[in-house]
Simulated scan of single mutants.
Amino acid sequence: MRVLVTGASGFIGSKLCPALLEAGYEVRAMTRTPEKYTGVGDPVAADVSDPDTLPPVLAGIDAAYYLVHSLDSGDFVEKDAEAARAFGTAAAAAGVQRIIYLGGLGAEDEKLSAHLQSRRQVEDLLGEAGVPVTVLRAAVVVGHGGISWEITRQLVKHLPIMVAPRWVKTRTQPIALPDVIRYLVGVLQAPEAKGRVYDIGGPEILRYVDMLKRAAVIQNKRALPLFIVPLLTPRLSSGWLTLVTDVDFETSRNLIDSMTNEVVVRDGDAIRELIPGEPMGYDEAVRLALADRAAAAEAQAQADAAEENSKAAAE
Rank of each mutant, 00 (worst) to 15 (best):
203 P>K: 14
108 E>V: 07
286 V>D: 05
19 A>R: 04
99 I>M: 12
247 V>S: 09
34 P>N: 04
314 A>Y: 00
43 P>A: 14
298 E>Y: 07
145 G>K: 14
296 A>L: 03
235 R>N: 15
278 E>Q: 15
132 P>G: 07
7 G>R: 03
251 T>P: 10
83 A>I: 07
258 S>V: 04
38 T>I: 01
66 Y>R: 00
278 E>K: 13
103 G>W: 04
108 E>F: 12
25 Y>P: 12
220 N>W: 01
76 F>C: 14
256 I>A: 10
69 H>D: 06
7 G>E: 02
73 S>I: 01
23 A>E: 05
242 T>N: 13
154 Q>C: 08
4 L>K: 06
245 T>G: 14
313 A>K: 10
188 L>N: 06
32 R>W: 01
69 H>W: 06
257 D>R: 07
101 Y>G: 11
147 I>E: 05
90 A>E: 06
143 G>T: 06
217 V>Q: 15
202 G>M: 12
84 A>Q: 03
157 K>F: 07
13 G>Y: 00
25 Y>S: 07
52 D>W: 11
148 S>N: 11
125 L>A: 04
217 V>K: 15
191 P>G: 06
269 D>A: 13
161 I>H: 13
2 R>M: 06
37 Y>A: 00
269 D>V: 08
117 Q>W: 03
52 D>V: 12
166 R>Q: 08
26 E>N: 12
72 D>S: 09
17 C>G: 02
163 V>F: 15
293 R>G: 10
188 L>M: 08
226 L>M: 13
177 L>G: 04
239 G>E: 14
123 E>M: 02
307 E>K: 14
230 P>W: 11
34 P>D: 09
94 A>Y: 00
218 I>D: 05
120 R>P: 02
215 A>G: 08
240 W>D: 00
56 P>F: 10
185 V>A: 15
54 L>K: 06
282 Y>T: 02
69 H>Q: 12
58 L>G: 03
174 P>R: 14
288 L>K: 08
34 P>T: 08
263 V>R: 08
304 D>R: 12
293 R>L: 03
310 S>P: 00
214 R>K: 12
228 I>G: 08
83 A>R: 07
39 G>R: 08
173 Q>T: 05
69 H>A: 14
209 V>G: 15
63 A>Q: 03
181 I>H: 11
232 L>V: 02
57 V>I: 06
154 Q>T: 10
80 D>C: 05
89 T>C: 02
266 R>N: 05
136 L>M: 02
86 A>Q: 09
112 L>P: 00
179 D>A: 08
78 E>D: 15
5 V>T: 07
286 V>Y: 01
111 K>N: 07
96 V>M: 03
305 A>G: 12
20 L>Y: 00
253 R>Q: 12
177 L>C: 04
292 D>Y: 09
26 E>W: 03
50 D>T: 12
114 A>H: 07
211 M>Y: 15
29 A>D: 02
277 G>H: 00
311 K>Q: 15
149 W>E: 11
287 R>S: 05
119 R>C: 02
15 K>V: 11
257 D>P: 01
182 R>A: 14
93 A>D: 01
113 S>H: 01
136 L>D: 02
99 I>P: 05
99 I>E: 04
142 V>Q: 01
289 A>N: 10
274 L>N: 00
